[in-house]
Design a protein around this nucleic acid. Structure first.
Length: 270
DNA sequence: CGGGGCTCCTGTGCGC
DNA sequence: TGCGCACAGGAGCCCC
């Protein structure tokens, strides 16, 4: 599942290879992935335009086009954007001026593509919270953000209107590093724990970016290669295995309807 | 605000 | 060996 580090990896890869390339044509095999405008309309507006740049907001990838419009893409669970040769699994294929292809693969068809004039107004982005690796995300801001919230900290970390780009993997990993039980009410964290969680979040995201993401589920980068962070995951998907810190078995529970792994000994409940 | 539930979809992995 | 079914999961949406 692509989260912030995976989307950032794809962004960095694509920036190098699609910038200044013209979109000669687009082939849409699964029209329902396009949320706006209608597929025919999108084709008309995108054909002949040039990719100017690529950036990321939360888990969204945003391509700026020479027309001044933006192509906004969310990979959801199984989306991939792979640059290179033609891929028969591709749901939406961009034919580029260098003779290469940008393939949007998506096994489970949850992905979303939009062509918009103002990317900031896109549903999902409009109410997006602060970027956890951004300059304005500080320990004191984090303290304030958590203060009013009685809900469980792990589902809160995954709320995109709270923090941008954190999903099930990195929420679990950062709480493990910070030694905080995922079910703790957010407003009950001690000041020291808030600081711990703040640095754990930033550290885990940065390390994951440096390792080019985690290839959990179907994730592949823009070159079609796996990420390298899988082997550094300490709790995610490790239920039943020994805790890397204390050796006790990692436990899996459901929180906010999502599977959650943690160490019942290391991660403090109070 | 909080909490629960439903929805989209399909490959995987289980039970029998 | 093979069939069929429950399940996972991001995020919007609904309801109370």
């Amino acid at each position: 599942m692509p989260e912030l580090p995976e989307v950032e990896t794809i962004k960095r890869d694509l920036e190098r290879v699609v910038s200044e390339k013209k979109i000669k044509d687009i082939e849409i095999s699964v029209g329902k992935l396009i949320k706006e405008p209608r597929a025919e309309e999108l084709t008309k507006r995108i054909k002949g335009k040039t990719f100017k740049g690529v950036f990321r907001r939360g888990k969204y990838l945003i391509f700026s086009l020479s027309s001044g419009e933006y192509l906004v893409v969310h990979l959801k669970l199984t989306g991939q954007l792979i640059y290179g040769e033609r891929d028969k699994r591709s749901r939406i294929t961009f034919f580029l001026s260098d003779g290469k292809y940008l393939n949007f693969n998506d096994q489970r068809l949850f992905g979303e593509v939009r062509l918009v004039k103002e990317w900031e107004e896109t549903p999902g982005i409009k109410k997006m919270g602060v970027e956890p690796l951004g300059r304005d995300f500080t320990p004191s801001l984090f303290q304030k953000m958590l203060a009013g919230r009685k809900t469980k900290v792990k589902p809160l970390l995954m709320e995109q209107s709270f923090l941008a780009g954190i999903g099930n993997i990195y929420a679990q990993e950062s709480l493990f590093r910070a030694k905080i039980h995922p079910g703790r009410p957010a407003n009950k964290l001690k000041e020291k724990e808030v600081k711990e969680l703040y640095s754990s979040l930033r550290a885990v995201l940065e390390e994951a970016i440096n390792k080019r993401g985690s290839s959990v589920d179907t994730y592949l980068d823009a070159k079609g290669e796996r990420g390298g962070f899988d082997s550094y995951l300490q709790v995610y998907g490790r239920e039943g295995s020994p805790c890397v810190r204390c050796g006790k078995g990692i436990v899996k529970v459901e929180l906010g309807g999502r599977g959650t792994c943690f160490c019942p000994r290391c991660q403090s409940t109070a």
